[in-house]
Amino acid sequence: MNAEQRLAKIVGSGQECSRDEVDPLFARLQPVTCDFMLGTWRGGLFNDHDALAGMLLGMNWYGKRFTGPDHVEPLLCRSADGSLYSYEKLGLARLREVSFRGTVSAAMIYDQRPIIDHFRRVTDDLVVGAMDAKGQPDILYFHLTRTH
């Protein structure tokens, strides 16, 4: 089973997966362009018990919306009534191609925080992200599924 198949199976099953399991799979995924990322994506975590995941779970994180290269809503959340809203206390973001571990791919760069999310392709509608936050020793891996 290749990296794409393995990650699609993990995401599809909803099973938790450690950072140590995701890391080598992420390294084998193909890069994506900024245009590929345009649209709205539902997010998910590989490990809900990861220290960095707690913040996202606490804000009822839904996913991300990429409107254009200079306008990204990195933290779409669900309100109590189920509607989506952009949690902007951490700011907005932009989309650029950035090298991460030797591979140039689309990355989301927060406007006001030292955080970069690097993306790699699993399928046309599924990507894996690697959140690289300055001052955090670990990468938070997550997945995004295109909704439209």
Rank of each mutant, 00 (worst) to 15 (best):
M1P: 14
N2E: 11
E4F: 00
E4S: 11
E4I: 00
R6H: 12
A8R: 04
V11A: 01
G14C: 04
Q15K: 13
Q15F: 01
S18M: 01
V22A: 08
V22D: 05
A27P: 08
A27G: 03
L29G: 06
Q30M: 08
Q30P: 03
P31V: 01
T33I: 03
C34D: 01
D35N: 04
F36Y: 13
F36H: 04
F36Q: 06
M37Y: 05
M37R: 09
L38K: 14
L38M: 08
L38N: 04
L38F: 04
G39R: 06
T40P: 03
T40H: 05
W41K: 14
G43M: 09
G44R: 09
G44C: 08
F46H: 11
N47A: 10
D48P: 15
D48C: 06
A53K: 10
M55T: 11
L57W: 06
L57D: 08
W61V: 03
Y62R: 11
Y62K: 13
Y62V: 04
Y62S: 07
G63W: 04
R65K: 11
R65I: 00
F66T: 12
G68H: 10
G68V: 02
D70E: 12
H71K: 14
E73R: 13
E73Q: 15
P74Q: 03
L75R: 12
L76Y: 07
C77V: 12
R78A: 08
S79F: 02
A80Y: 10
D81H: 08
G82H: 10
Y85H: 14
S86N: 15
S86C: 13
S86P: 15
E88L: 13
K89E: 15
L90H: 12
L90E: 07
L90P: 12
L92W: 09
L95K: 09
L95Q: 06
R96W: 02
V98S: 05
V98E: 13
S99I: 06
R101H: 13
R101A: 07
G102R: 14
G102I: 01
T103D: 07
T103K: 14
S105Q: 07
S105D: 02
A106I: 07
I109T: 14
I109V: 15
D111W: 02
D111A: 11
D111S: 09
P114G: 02
P114N: 13
I115H: 04
D117T: 09
H118Y: 14
F119D: 02
D124T: 03
D124V: 03
D124W: 00
D125N: 08
V127P: 03
V128I: 15
A130F: 04
M131G: 00
D132S: 08
D132I: 00
D132V: 01
K134G: 09
Q136I: 12
Q136T: 09
P137K: 08
I139A: 06
I139Y: 05
I139R: 09
Y141K: 04
Y141P: 05
H143A: 10
L144G: 08
L144K: 11
R146Q: 03
T147G: 05
T147A: 04
H148L: 06
H148I: 02
H148T: 07
H148S: 08
